[in-house]
Protein backbone atom coordinates (compact mmCIF):
# COMPACT_ATOMS: atom_id res chain seq x y z
CA UNK A 1 0.00 0.00 0.00
CA UNK A 2 1.18 3.49 -0.83
CA UNK A 3 0.51 6.41 1.49
CA UNK A 4 1.45 10.02 1.10
CA UNK A 5 1.33 13.21 3.11
CA UNK A 6 1.78 16.87 2.30
CA UNK A 7 3.03 18.86 5.29
CA UNK A 8 2.50 22.57 4.71
CA UNK A 9 2.85 25.80 6.65
CA UNK A 10 4.87 29.00 7.01
CA UNK A 11 8.62 28.83 6.47
CA UNK A 12 10.02 28.43 9.98
CA UNK A 13 7.28 26.12 11.28
CA UNK A 14 9.55 23.16 10.65
CA UNK A 15 7.53 21.37 7.98
CA UNK A 16 10.65 20.40 6.00
CA UNK A 17 12.26 18.84 9.09
CA UNK A 18 9.03 17.06 10.10
CA UNK A 19 8.89 15.51 6.62
CA UNK A 20 12.53 14.43 6.78
CA UNK A 21 12.03 12.77 10.16
CA UNK A 22 8.92 10.98 8.89
CA UNK A 23 10.76 9.79 5.76
CA UNK A 24 13.77 8.63 7.75
CA UNK A 25 11.46 6.82 10.21
CA UNK A 26 9.60 5.18 7.31
CA UNK A 27 12.90 3.94 5.87
CA UNK A 28 14.03 2.71 9.29
CA UNK A 29 10.70 0.89 9.57
CA UNK A 30 11.49 -0.93 6.29
CA UNK A 31 9.34 1.08 3.90
CA UNK A 32 10.26 2.61 0.56
CA UNK A 33 10.06 6.40 0.84
CA UNK A 34 10.51 9.62 -1.08
CA UNK A 35 10.75 13.10 0.37
CA UNK A 36 10.25 16.07 -1.92
CA UNK A 37 10.58 19.64 -0.67
CA UNK A 38 9.31 22.87 -2.08
CA UNK A 39 12.63 24.61 -2.40
CA UNK A 40 13.96 28.07 -3.09
CA UNK A 41 12.76 31.48 -1.89
CA UNK A 42 9.67 30.04 -0.19
CA UNK A 43 12.00 28.41 2.35
CA UNK A 44 12.76 31.87 3.72
CA UNK A 45 9.58 33.03 5.40
CA UNK A 46 6.90 32.30 2.82
CA UNK A 47 4.86 29.11 2.66
CA UNK A 48 6.79 25.88 2.62
CA UNK A 49 5.70 22.33 2.04
CA UNK A 50 7.07 18.88 1.50
CA UNK A 51 5.59 15.64 0.24
CA UNK A 52 6.47 12.28 1.75
CA UNK A 53 5.45 9.03 0.07
CA UNK A 54 5.68 5.79 2.07
CA UNK A 55 5.10 2.45 0.41
CA UNK A 56 5.92 -1.24 0.63
CA UNK A 57 6.87 -1.11 -3.06
CA UNK A 58 9.36 1.13 -4.90
CA UNK A 59 7.91 4.63 -5.21
CA UNK A 60 7.20 5.94 -8.70
CA UNK A 61 6.13 9.56 -8.63
CA UNK A 62 7.31 11.63 -5.66
CA UNK A 63 4.70 14.18 -6.75
CA UNK A 64 1.20 13.31 -5.62
CA UNK A 65 -2.05 14.71 -7.05
CA UNK A 66 -4.23 13.37 -4.23
CA UNK A 67 -2.27 12.76 -1.02
CA UNK A 68 -3.78 10.35 1.49
CA UNK A 69 -3.09 12.95 4.19
CA UNK A 70 -2.48 16.68 4.53
CA UNK A 71 -1.16 18.56 7.55
CA UNK A 72 -2.12 22.24 7.23
CA UNK A 73 -0.33 24.44 9.73
CA UNK A 74 -1.69 27.74 8.40
CA UNK A 75 -4.65 29.07 6.41
CA UNK A 76 -2.95 29.40 2.99
CA UNK A 77 -1.92 25.74 3.30
CA UNK A 78 -5.47 24.65 4.15
CA UNK A 79 -6.87 26.68 1.23
CA UNK A 80 -4.33 25.16 -1.15
CA UNK A 81 -4.27 21.52 -0.07
CA UNK A 82 -7.69 20.71 1.44
CA UNK A 83 -9.22 20.13 -2.00
CA UNK A 84 -6.44 17.68 -2.89
CA UNK A 85 -6.86 15.16 -0.03
CA UNK A 86 -7.86 11.74 -1.40
CA UNK A 87 -11.37 10.58 -0.52
CA UNK A 88 -11.43 8.96 2.94
CA UNK A 89 -8.04 10.55 3.60
CA UNK A 90 -6.83 12.45 6.63
CA UNK A 91 -6.69 16.23 7.11
CA UNK A 92 -5.03 17.69 10.17
CA UNK A 93 -5.90 21.36 10.68
CA UNK A 94 -3.94 23.66 12.99
CA UNK A 95 -6.90 25.16 14.83
CA UNK A 96 -4.60 27.62 16.65
CA UNK A 97 -3.88 29.61 13.50
CA UNK A 98 -6.77 28.73 11.22
CA UNK A 99 -10.03 30.51 11.84
CA UNK A 100 -12.25 28.38 9.64
CA UNK A 101 -13.45 24.81 9.70
CA UNK A 102 -12.55 22.36 6.96
CA UNK A 103 -15.11 22.17 4.13
CA UNK A 104 -14.72 18.54 3.09
CA UNK A 105 -17.09 15.96 4.54
CA UNK A 106 -15.70 12.93 2.67
CA UNK A 107 -12.43 12.84 4.63
CA UNK A 108 -11.33 12.47 8.24
CA UNK A 109 -10.76 15.96 9.60
CA UNK A 110 -8.93 16.51 12.87
CA UNK A 111 -8.82 20.08 14.18
CA UNK A 112 -5.95 20.27 16.65
CA UNK A 113 -4.82 23.36 18.62
CA UNK A 114 -1.23 22.68 17.61
CA UNK A 115 0.35 25.97 18.73
CA UNK A 116 -1.36 25.83 22.14
CA UNK A 117 -0.13 22.28 22.67
CA UNK A 118 3.42 23.24 21.64
CA UNK A 119 3.40 26.15 24.08
CA UNK A 120 2.03 23.95 26.85
CA UNK A 121 4.75 21.37 26.15
CA UNK A 122 7.27 24.11 26.86
CA UNK A 123 8.58 25.21 23.45
CA UNK A 124 6.41 26.92 20.80
CA UNK A 125 8.87 25.76 18.15
CA UNK A 126 7.79 22.13 18.57
CA UNK A 127 4.69 22.80 16.44
CA UNK A 128 6.03 20.45 13.77
CA UNK A 129 6.44 17.55 16.20
CA UNK A 130 2.97 18.07 17.71
CA UNK A 131 1.58 17.93 14.16
CA UNK A 132 3.63 14.85 13.30
CA UNK A 133 2.44 13.09 16.47
CA UNK A 134 -1.18 13.79 15.54
CA UNK A 135 -0.59 12.50 12.01
CA UNK A 136 0.98 9.29 13.31
CA UNK A 137 -2.02 8.58 15.53
CA UNK A 138 -4.49 9.35 12.74
CA UNK A 139 -2.76 7.17 10.14
CA UNK A 140 -0.56 4.64 12.04
CA UNK A 141 1.86 4.76 9.11
CA UNK A 142 4.95 4.36 11.30
CA UNK A 143 5.09 3.51 15.04
CA UNK A 144 5.55 6.50 17.35
CA UNK A 145 8.64 5.03 19.02
CA UNK A 146 10.46 4.68 15.67
CA UNK A 147 9.79 8.35 14.96
CA UNK A 148 11.00 9.32 18.43
CA UNK A 149 14.22 7.41 17.91
CA UNK A 150 14.85 9.02 14.53
CA UNK A 151 13.99 12.48 15.90
CA UNK A 152 16.44 12.03 18.78
CA UNK A 153 19.16 10.99 16.34
CA UNK A 154 18.47 14.03 14.14
CA UNK A 155 18.70 16.33 17.18
CA UNK A 156 21.97 14.70 18.28
CA UNK A 157 23.43 15.03 14.76
CA UNK A 158 22.52 18.71 14.84
CA UNK A 159 24.11 19.20 18.29
CA UNK A 160 20.70 19.85 19.86
CA UNK A 161 20.57 17.06 22.48
CA UNK A 162 18.87 19.38 24.95
CA UNK A 163 15.83 19.62 22.66
CA UNK A 164 15.19 15.87 22.53
CA UNK A 165 13.04 15.70 25.66
CA UNK A 166 10.74 18.56 24.70
CA UNK A 167 10.30 17.22 21.16
CA UNK A 168 9.47 13.77 22.52
CA UNK A 169 6.83 15.36 24.71
CA UNK A 170 5.50 17.27 21.70
CA UNK A 171 5.18 14.03 19.70
CA UNK A 172 3.38 12.40 22.64
CA UNK A 173 0.98 15.29 23.15
CA UNK A 174 0.19 15.50 19.44
CA UNK A 175 -0.40 11.76 19.41
CA UNK A 176 -2.71 12.04 22.42
CA UNK A 177 -4.67 14.90 20.85
CA UNK A 178 -6.27 12.51 18.34
CA UNK A 179 -8.99 10.27 19.77
Amino acid sequence: MERSVVIAGFGGQGVILAGKILAQAGMTHGLEVTWLPSYGPEMRGGTANCTVVLSDEPVGSPIVDEPSAVIALNLPSLDKFEPTVAAAGVLIVNQSLIGRAAKRSDIHVYAVPINEIATRVGNPRTVNMVALGAYLKATRVVPLDVVKRVMAEAMRDGGKEKLIAVNEKALDEGYAAIP
Partner: peptide, 10 residues
Protein backbone atom coordinates in the same frame (compact mmCIF):
# COMPACT_ATOMS: atom_id res chain seq x y z
CA UNK B 1 17.18 17.89 -12.84
CA UNK B 2 16.16 19.95 -9.84
CA UNK B 3 13.56 17.44 -8.69
CA UNK B 4 16.04 14.57 -8.64
CA UNK B 5 18.71 16.76 -7.06
CA UNK B 6 16.45 17.94 -4.24
CA UNK B 7 14.37 14.87 -3.43
CA UNK B 8 15.44 12.26 -0.86
CA UNK B 9 15.21 8.51 -1.21
CA UNK B 10 16.88 5.51 0.45
Amino acid sequence: DGLLGQMMEP
